[in-house]
Computed example of a mutant assay.
Amino acid sequence: MLAGVRVVTAALFVGVLAGCNPGVTAGGDAKPSLPVQDKGAGQGAPGAPALPGLSTAAVARTQLAGLKVAGQQAMTGYSRAKFTHWTGQGDACDTREVVLERSGKDVKRDSECKAVSGTWVSVYDGVTVTDAAKLDIDHMVPLANAWRSGAGAWTAERRKEFANDLTRPQLLAVSAATNRSKGDQGPDEWQPPARAYWCTYATAWTNVKATYQLTVTEAEKAKLTEMLETCS
């Protein structure tokens, strides 16, 4: 009889515990499960670095709905040189080196602020890189795409800010191969090979275009909508 009481008591205790903490199950190991997060605010790939200024997917959807839809403008007058980069960021470092440092693990620099060692995860393809020379700093919204979306009318200072923006999800270190495969294409023309990163990619792209009030094409908006649907 006493044994039966003990069993019932134990069962009741586990039931109460599970009710107070959804991460604990009666048949589990009592370790709390990780909360389910909106991948729009996450990174979508193991080991991926956090992107500054990244919104939730819900915010990105609202931003996308408010973006002006228009055809691409002419490339007349375009030059990468009109988007001054990489600018100095203090301590002998430029924008590229700052992005490399924040995107990697155990990054060590030399006296000229060049990354001489470290480990990086290229979020576009999931490749782990240990040689900084094999990494490119990608502009989430490419300079040429920005030009076709309205940046052609900006001041030189505004283009410089855009090309060196460290406070928004505009700059990230990725494998040279994926960056060059992407080129200046929009989401409707190129998507990260790692599908798990689509949510973050679409969120970041939309955040940047909304911040800088750049336009999107019909095809671009449709693909961004599709990619945002991969978010939890």
Rank of each mutant, 00 (worst) to 15 (best):
M1I: 05
S122G: 10
T25I: 00
L67K: 02
N179G: 11
M1S: 14
G23L: 13
N21G: 06
W198Y: 09
A132I: 11
D106N: 14
L34R: 14
S111L: 05
Y201M: 00
D91S: 15
D138R: 00
Q185V: 03
T25C: 02
L143A: 11
K223R: 15
V127Q: 13
N207V: 01
G126D: 11
V121W: 04
L166T: 11
Q170C: 01
A144F: 00
K209G: 02
D184C: 05
L214M: 08
S149D: 02
G77Y: 07
A18E: 13
V16D: 06
Q213R: 12
E157L: 04
V8G: 09
S149W: 04
T84Q: 14
A30E: 04
T200V: 09
G88P: 11
V14I: 08
D165G: 08
Q43M: 10
L54R: 02
A202I: 02
V98D: 04
S122L: 06
Y201I: 02
P46M: 05
A65C: 00
L51H: 03
A48E: 03
R102Q: 13
L54K: 09
C20S: 12
P22C: 09
K114T: 10
G44R: 02
N21K: 12
N207F: 01
Y197N: 08
G71H: 03
W190S: 04
Q191T: 14
L100W: 04
E226D: 12
L224E: 03
A30P: 01
A10K: 08
M140T: 13
T217W: 02
A10M: 07
Q185A: 14
A204I: 00
Y212W: 08
V14M: 13
V174M: 04
L224K: 05
K134D: 15
D29R: 08
S103Y: 01
P193R: 07
M227Q: 10
R102I: 08
H139T: 06
A41P: 00
V216H: 02
T230M: 03
E218C: 00
C199W: 05
L51C: 00
A153H: 11
K182Y: 05
A133T: 15
G27M: 00
L12F: 11
S181V: 09
T62Y: 01
A151G: 08
W86P: 15
G53Y: 01
W120M: 07
A173N: 08
L12P: 08
Q89E: 15
S103Q: 08
W120K: 09
S55Q: 02
T95V: 10
Q63A: 07
A222F: 04
R80L: 01
N145L: 15
L17E: 10
L224V: 09
S33M: 10
L172R: 13
G183T: 08
G186R: 13
M140F: 00
T76D: 15
G4N: 13
D94S: 07
V7W: 07
A202E: 03
S175L: 05
V123N: 03
W120F: 10
M1R: 14
A219L: 11
G118I: 03
P52T: 03
C231S: 06
L34G: 11
H85N: 13
G66S: 15
K134E: 14
P187L: 07
T9Y: 12
